[in-house]
Nucleic acid binder design. Sequence first.
DNA 1: ACAATCTCTATTGCATAAGTAGGGATTTGT
DNA 2: ACAAATCCCTACTTATGCAATAGAGATTGT
Lengths: 153, 153
Amino acid sequence: MKLSVRGEYALRAMQVLAERHGGPVVSIQTLSEEQNIPKRFLEQILNDLKSSGLVESRRGMAGGYRLAMAPADVPLARIIRYIDGALSPVSCVSERFYEKCSCPDETRCALRSVMKEVRDAVAQMMEKTTLADLIARAQKLRAVPMGPMDFVI
Amino acid sequence: MKLSVRGEYALRAMQVLAERHGGPVVSIQTLSEEQNIPKRFLEQILNDLKSSGLVESRRGMAGGYRLAMAPADVPLARIIRYIDGALSPVSCVSERFYEKCSCPDETRCALRSVMKEVRDAVAQMMEKTTLADLIARAQKLRAVPMGPMDFVI
DNA sequence: ACAATCTCTATTGCATAAGTAGGGATTTGT
DNA sequence: ACAAATCCCTACTTATGCAATAGAGATTGT
């Protein structure tokens, strides 16, 4: 039930790009250092994201990456689907990555109906949450930096 | 974001055991045929489930497996957690399989807060749905076997 | 004794993920 | 023109985990 490391890196990098949206492009170097992501690996990921049309790049000395669209127009689902594939726990309930499963009768599979609900819950969450929402959350989290337990000396 | 095949097999096998709860033990042979699961592989899985205390076994000629408790007392979450591990999409939001992630500040990670909500949604669903619920769903699905499209000759 | 079952451990094959490497192309600054 | 910093592309390596298979042993009913 896991997101791949690759997918996680993609989301983190995209969040940084979203935060700097409108400013100058951001280099892999910067992204890599800021987010503790292996530089060469991130390079690949950003390249994939570029192929997907989610980011644009600029080459040369002052080069780097930037979002290809407004943060509010990029649901997390889109990033994850592109990098990792299906959101569904089993592929027989996936809408875009459907595959037949080995169970005797898919149409009457009780497990399938449960998994479909799980899928829908996850998809809805990932679909409604955009990079803009992520930024908003980050700001809130910065505003209340410490949990109540952290006041102990 | 996937359940392993192993986990899926475990759930399917457990459903059958739940349906036959109260009756005689069910052999791997039967489970394997009924659910299209490689026999030898299922053997391993059932063995794991036995170690977890979810099923009991009987050896010898009329041997087989049965649930160790009532279907209503077995949430799907328990099976999945035992076979596959965390329900969480990222381990830094897992309650039972927590692992530190590589992001710079976990307490203020916006992505983490989103993932936590996803985790909660999945966990709640898997926790509240038991094997008994699965049986009930299966019965309903049997009652309305065909979708509207299937009436075409 | 025999046959059908579970039990346990090991191993294999395979796919995918994670990360690394090298050399090339492009832009900027001097 | 040249150097430096960057992106670009392809290939490779390595590790990990998953799915499945295999073989020998233990237990039970007839």
